[in-house]
């Protein structure tokens, strides 16, 4: 009897081992780490689910996608410090440039590897104000008036905050003409900022949940999502001029090669450009690059005059060190 049980057990164990072995041959267990910026939590939660299913159907592999969210600059810093991301999806090109320059994990010509400067979608900066717009905020020049509380995260750690800063700068430059006048304008604007959070989501919480400030300088997607989550409490104000924000994506090539995830990482990014990916992107209020999908969701995305980082600021490489580097314009206005 005992012998029989032992035999049975051995057969059972053998079967388990065999099935495990066969399972390994047929379908791999892969995990992929996407290090992303702050407001993409909801987008990538849904996108990861869709992509995992797509990848499983296509290859039979079981894919686990991990995500880390935080201020874009902070996230880039973590990757430089050794956070082993396979894919980075950040708020602006300069943060991926920083990883490429400091670690060589990403080739310096990364931005040409995928369509549209490696940005599967764009967005812009708008104002979120409280219902009825009690402070009557219409445009950027209303933000520098005394007694207006402006909420924006810290440009040193947040990508969205850098787009906020540059959009305000572009407005002032167009209206007032000179760099000095623009700097005065920005200085006045930041005098009205009571809290500098490290990331866009922190700033949204400060404005929406904690009720601080009169206007939130927000990603369009973040503002639209707040309207959806808290209906009837807020309004969006579109300024006369804003900036075309291009949040780019890249494969962290050396890390992916080490993990053996190069193929799936490439597919992960390419799927963002597919119809299904673009549809999810639009549903989460980002402006899709696919014209047909954009047309379908047009009512969410009003037409605004948009400057670009290349036309007005000579590209991110130049803008990053001039405005946000050590001793740059942002540091100067906080020294005053």
């Amino acid at each position: 009897m005992i012998k029989l049980t032992a035999k049975k057990l051995a057969v059972l164990l053998g079967l388990v081992a065999l099935s495990g072995f066969l399972g390994n041959v047929q379908a791999k267990q892969i995990s992929l780490l996407n290090v992303s910026y702050d407001p993409t939590r909801e987008l990538y939660r849904d996108y990861n689910k869709a992509f995992t299913e797509y990848w499983n159907k296509k290859t039979g592999d079981q894919l686990t996608i991990d995500v880390s969210n935080g201020g874009s600059g902070k996230q880039a810093r973590a990757v430089i410090d050794g956070l082993e991301a396979d894919v980075v999806t950040l708020a602006l090109a300069s943060d991926i440039n920083a990883i490429a320059e400091k670690t060589q994990l990403i080739p310096v010509d990364w931005q040409g590897k995928f369509p549209n400067n490696s940005s599967p979608y764009t967005s812009t900066i708008v104002f979120l104000v409280r219902k009825g717009n009690p402070k009557n905020i219409k445009d950027w020049n209303d933000l520098v008036k005394p007694g207006i509380g402006v909420i924006t995260p810290n440009p040193k750690t947040s990508g969205g905050a850098r787009w906020n800063f540059l959009a305000a700068w572009a407005y002032a430059k167009h209206k007032l003409g000179s760099d000095d006048a623009a700097k005065d304008f920005i200085t006045k604007l930041f005098k009205n900022v009571p809290v500098l959070d490290t990331g866009a989501r922190g700033a949204t919480n400060t404005f929406v949940q904690r009720g601080i400030g009169d206007v939130l300088l927000a990603w369009e997607n973040e503002a639209l999502q707040s309207l959806q989550e808290e209906p009837g409490k807020f309004e969006i104000v579109t300024p006369s001029l804003s900036i075309l924000a291009e949040p780019p994506v890249a494969i962290v090539e050396k890390t992916a090669a080490k993990h053996g995830t190069t193929e799936v990482a490439k597919a992960y990014i390419e799927y963002l450009y597919s119809d299904a990916g673009q549809e999810l992107i639009a549903q989460h209020f980002y402006r899709p690059s696919n014209k047909a999908v954009l047309a379908k969701y047009e009512k969410n995305f009003p037409k605004v005059e948009l400057v670009t980082i290349d036309s007005d600021f000579g590209g991110w490489k130049k803008a990053q060190s001039f405005y946000f580097g050590d001793g740059g314009v942002f540091d100067q206005i906080y020294k005053k």
Binding site: L33, D66, V67, S68, N69, G70, A78, L83
Partner: peptide, 8 residues
């Protein structure tokens, strides 16, 4: 030191 990887 965490890296904030959700679920990990």
């Amino acid at each position: 030191v965490s890296g904030h990887i959700q679920g990990k």
